[in-house]
Amino acid sequence: MKHIFAALCLLAAPAAAQNAPHVVTDIAPIHALVTQLMEGVGEPSQIIPTGSSPHSYAMRPSEARALRDADLVVWVGPSLTHWLEEPLDTLSGDAARLTLMDDDRAVKLPMREATELGEEHDHGHDGHDHEGEVDPHGWLAPSNAVLWASVISKTLADVDPANAEIYEVNSKRFAEEVGALEQEITAKLAPYHDASFIVLHDAFHYFEATFGVEADAFIVAGDGSTPGPAQIKALRDHLAEDPATCAFTAPQENDSLLRTVIEGQGTRIAVLDPMGDGTTPYATLIRQFADDMVACFSQE
């Protein structure tokens, strides 16, 4: 009887799920976005596990196999995961590929230099020159997420025409949800446009630019390069004269360097998660990010 029941369940399974394309994504927020677009069809794979740095990661055999079997690869691009470019060419050269930050219509912000964030913090980061480089953390701009969702859904439809209508419906629903979210967060953050804060890793620029808040300083550059002792001292001196209200880190980061920089200054530390766990819907991720920021600013 159990065997008959199992057979009936298999026959009843949606054809879309059985024939879903093999889609591979790089990081958690892109996995979550593609998951929403594929709802009712299937679920993508994620190469870089939640909690691992996208700037450097050694793939496991199972992740290499996922790339080898991919029909479509969706990734931010080499500006975030430069090490992934060669495996993509080698393992999934025949798959369709979307490099999200290469889209000319996307909002693209330059990598910020230390000189832009605090007058005395002017020595660069271990000699790294970021002039002309694009900040790769573009998913934190809701307008980029909506654009990418549209592009991804159309590419999914090309790869999997049988489910084109599902992808289109999911993309439209996503755009409506994120549009309403952007208005909601704009109102929440309006009272805090002059709030003073620093960030451990300069990964939040797109969110800041979208909603009219901007960090006074960062410690670790957008590409993950860390400052030397002279830069740390310069930043500490700067903040001693003009302390920040909040200092933001992320759950994926070790905040010991941040604590060193703000030691004795009365600055509140708060955690903002720009990545999620790969299943958190995009709107939920960005809403929580904004709420955690407001919670720090609004403390008496």
Rank of each mutant, 00 (worst) to 15 (best):
H3P: 07
L10I: 09
A12E: 00
A13G: 08
P14S: 09
P14C: 02
N19G: 03
T25K: 00
T25D: 00
D26M: 13
T35E: 12
Q36A: 06
M38G: 03
E39I: 05
E43Y: 02
T50R: 02
S52M: 14
M59T: 13
S62V: 08
S62M: 06
A64I: 02
V73Y: 10
W75Y: 15
W75T: 03
P78M: 10
S79T: 10
S79K: 09
L88S: 01
T90M: 11
G93K: 10
A95G: 09
L100M: 14
A106Y: 03
V107P: 01
E116I: 03
G118S: 10
D126M: 13
D126C: 06
G127I: 07
D135M: 05
L140Q: 13
S150G: 14
K154H: 09
D158Q: 10
D158V: 07
A162F: 03
N163L: 05
A164S: 11
A164F: 00
I166H: 06
Y167D: 00
Y167F: 07
V169P: 02
V169I: 10
S171F: 00
E176Y: 02
E182H: 08
Q183T: 15
A195I: 06
I198V: 11
V199Y: 01
F204D: 01
F204K: 01
E208T: 01
T210Y: 09
F211N: 07
A215I: 02
A215K: 03
A217T: 05
T226A: 15
P227A: 10
G228D: 13
P229T: 12
Q231L: 12
A234Q: 15
H238G: 13
A247E: 00
A250W: 01
P251V: 07
E253Y: 15
D255K: 10
L272T: 04
M275F: 12
G278N: 08
L285R: 03
R287T: 12
Q299E: 15
E300L: 13
